[in-house]
Amino acid sequence: MKTVVAIYTGQGLADPLKAVFKEVLPDIRLVNIIDDSLIGDVVKAGRIPEGVARRLVQYYHHAEELGADVILNTCSSVGEVADQARGLIGVPIVKIDQSMAAKAAAEYGRIGVLATLPSTLEPTLRLIRKEADLLGKEVVLVNGLAEGAFDALVGGRPEEHDRILLETAKRVCEEADVLVLAQGSMARMEQSLREATGKPVLSSPRLGVEQVKSVLKQLESNPS
């Protein structure tokens, strides 16, 4: 049985992602490492503090010790730490938003990126730009920061969070061919945003797990 270790910086995505794994990769052993202090420290600093980066790398090492065949980094805010850590870790690290960013860059020219935190928006914009550069393609990126939505969510007002996100999506969709949800926790709104805007909407959880499945197949085909 293959083992996937998913590393979380907060609590919100673990249960929804577990359900996606059960559907896409029902026969793997899934281990979750959750440290919800990580996203709190990132939000407070407005960037990735050195302490957060060090703790994440330690968790990647712990994942190796747990027998991970693949590590899934589930937080878009810290994906660049995963990039830097790949040379230190002996198993593949999949970033949950990599496939989403690649799909957006490959298939669309004007890409609206929705996020409730600047610390997630900026890395996602950079990732999509990087994927477009790899394709030799020019894309237009539209900033879709839903200001106030994150505070509403952590303040126990999910309806207000959803309202702000919906209003932001309606504004951004006028300039975009597709909407990209920068945070995996926003995936629950994918269908409602699609219906409200009439535009394609991409979210990361399923695409990320499908990439994990692809990497596991490659490992089976090319054991080392």
Rank of each mutant, 00 (worst) to 15 (best):
E122K: 04
L117M: 15
P92H: 12
V139W: 01
E210G: 09
F150R: 10
L216I: 15
L134N: 15
H161P: 08
L179M: 04
T168C: 02
A152I: 09
E138F: 15
I128F: 02
V24Q: 06
T74V: 11
E64P: 03
F21Y: 14
V142G: 00
R194L: 08
V94T: 11
V43A: 14
Y60I: 10
E160H: 05
Q98W: 10
G67V: 12
A102L: 08
K170V: 10
G40M: 13
V215N: 07
I7G: 02
S99P: 07
V4I: 13
R126D: 15
L117Q: 03
Y59R: 15
G67L: 11
L66W: 10
D35C: 13
S99G: 14
P158Y: 01
I34M: 08
L17Y: 05
L166G: 08
I128W: 00
G51H: 08
D36I: 05
E220T: 13
V209Q: 06
Y8R: 03
R171Y: 04
G112V: 05
G198I: 01
E147K: 14
L141N: 01
K2N: 10
N73Y: 03
L127P: 02
V215K: 12
I7F: 02
R55G: 06
E175R: 00
A196E: 08
D133L: 15
E107T: 10
